[in-house]
Each structure stands twice: as structure tokens, then as C-alpha cells.
Amino acid sequence: MNQFRKTLIGAAAAALAATGALAETELTVYTAIEAEDLPRYAETFNKSHPDITVNWVRDSTGVITAKLLAEKDNPQADVVWGLAATSLLLLKSEGMLEPYAPAGVDELDPKFVDKDNPPAWVGMDAWVAAVCVNTIESEKLGLDMPSSWKDLTDPQYEGHVIMPNPASSGTGFLDVSSWLQIFGEEEGWAYMDALHENIARYTHSGSAPCKMAASGEIPIGISFAFRGAKSKAAGGPIEIVVPSEGVGWDMEASAIVAGTAHPEAAQKLIDFTVTKEASEMYNVGYAVVAYPGVAKPVEHFPEGLLDAMIDNDFEFAANNRARILEEWQSRYGSKSDPQ
């Protein structure tokens, strides 16, 4: 018994010493990356930085953004790794981000880097709008395959289109802000008025429309390409359509939270996020990544997506977000009679 206890204590001490040696710093990292990707990201990072432990705090984009803003005066996070750029802009405008130019940032596609110098955030990969269309249900209902945003306003799609609510979903907001950029303010709203006629309802989440299209609940879901590819891989009978006018996009980006107690470790992590290795890691799920030339095609990803990406003005989106949402709410927010 005694012997056993001694062994146990010895083992515990050894384990403690081991973790102590390996993990000198623990970083609290807020993220909105898909849960299933997190262990892989942390593992890859730890290959080159075994001394930094990543403690993930993961939630949907909205929740994480709300959390960060709520903690404005008492930040809990050291680093944000994988949050929508629009959200990071919001944090930046609150002065919550620590500007830092990671080593090798010059290698990145400049589209993916904050314009300030030093940049407050750096991008990782892009997240592109797309339309998921259920082929089985479309056929049943005799719907044509849409090819453009404008097509979706056709009366034949009435009640057969579903999209995320921009007020609660980042994907929804990138759709709306891209339409305003593609069509211009006035025509953009006119477009949404027409589209609204066909919308069955607005979901809270950005991936739900594509999943619903995949399950045939609503045949056409305005969502994002990454989700579409996944649903298709899971066996959903869907076609991923890239509208011809061009598609909105947002990127997942990373930043150091101002006031972190571990600035050096945080910088190391940000340095890692812009490496080629990191972009290769992102490329498993995302077809568009920040490091030029590494992107390999992702299975089921629609072709021509890269070219369809509009020249997104993130500053416009961030600075007009409140106004756009207010306008959107007053136009479509209270569809209190869903019949």
C-alpha cells in the first residue's frame, strides 16, 4: 500500500514537472473556428511551440464577439484566433486590439491584412457566401437552378429560400453588406425587398440555411461555401451555386487583445498564424487562405469562387453596421405573420 502510494506520488510529481517544463505559458484564446478543427490547429501550433498551451474558448461568432465586448474593461482573452474580420474591426474601434506586425506578414495577400501599420489584425482564410440548392426538392417543385442573386427574386422561388438573419448571423450580415456594395445602397435595398418576398424565414445561424437545404426542409439556402461543401460531403443532395454578380465574403482573422499578460507568447501565436504552414492547415477546410499560392482545391468546393469574391470594404461594413441593421430590422425584422 505504502509502496503504491509512493509510486503514485512520484508519478504525479513527474507529471507536474513535465507539464511545467513543456507548458510555461497558457494562453486563453477566443475563437469561432469550427469545434472539430480546434484540436488540429492547437496540435499543429504546438509542434513548433510546445511551451505554449492554448486554452480555447469557442463559440459562435456572435457570442464570442458579445463576450469580448462585454469583457471590454476586463479582458479575459489573450488572443483572438479565428474570428470574423468585421467583429475584429468592432473590437479595434473600441481600442481593444494590440497592433502587432507578425514576422512574415509581408508574405500574405495584402487583402488579408489590416491597413493600419502596424496592423491590428491579420487574416487567415476567407469565408465566402454561396447558395445551397437541394436538387431533389427543386426537381419535385419544378424549380429552375438559380445562377445569380437576381434569379432568387423570381416568383417561382416564393417560400423556397432561406437565409440567415443579419442581426444575429455574421454570414447574414456579409450577404447584406455585399448586396449593398454590389448593387449600391438604393438598389441593394430594392433587391432585398424583392428577395424578402421569397424568403421562407430568416435563421439565427449562418450554417443553418445550407443544412436545411441539404435536408430538404427549404430547397434553397443562402449560406457559405464551406458549409455547403461539408453538407454535400455528408450526403446532402445539394448543388453549391456561386451567384454571377459576385459574392460577399468575410475572413477569419487573428489579433492580440490589448492588455494581455502574456504578450510574448501571444506574439508567437500570431506569428504562427501567418506562416505558410498555418495556411496549409486552414486549407483543409477553407479554399481561400491568406498565404498566396498554397491553396489546394477543397472537395465539393464550387469552382470560380475565388474570382467571384467582391472587393469587400470591411470598413464600410463595420462603420455602417448599426445603421444597416437598423434599416434591415425596420424593413424585414417583424415578419410577424409568417403565412
Binding site: S60, A66, S168, K335
Partner: peptide
């Protein structure tokens, strides 16, 4: 109502939408 409410807004869900969706505490 969050699951089945669709576009039908109710108070409890509004709180969620304001806080989580719009960060309007």
C-alpha cells in the same frame, strides 16, 4: 420560440438577439 418561432418575434428571443446577435447589451 428560438427553435420553432421562425420570424415570429417574442420578447425572450429578442433579448437573445439583441445581446448575442447585435451585442446591444
Amino acid at each position: 420560440p428560438k427553435v420553432i418561432g421562425g420570424q415570429f418575434n417574442v420578447l425572450a428571443v429578442d433579448i437573445y438577439k439583441q445581446v448575442i446577435g447585435q451585442q446591444n447589451f
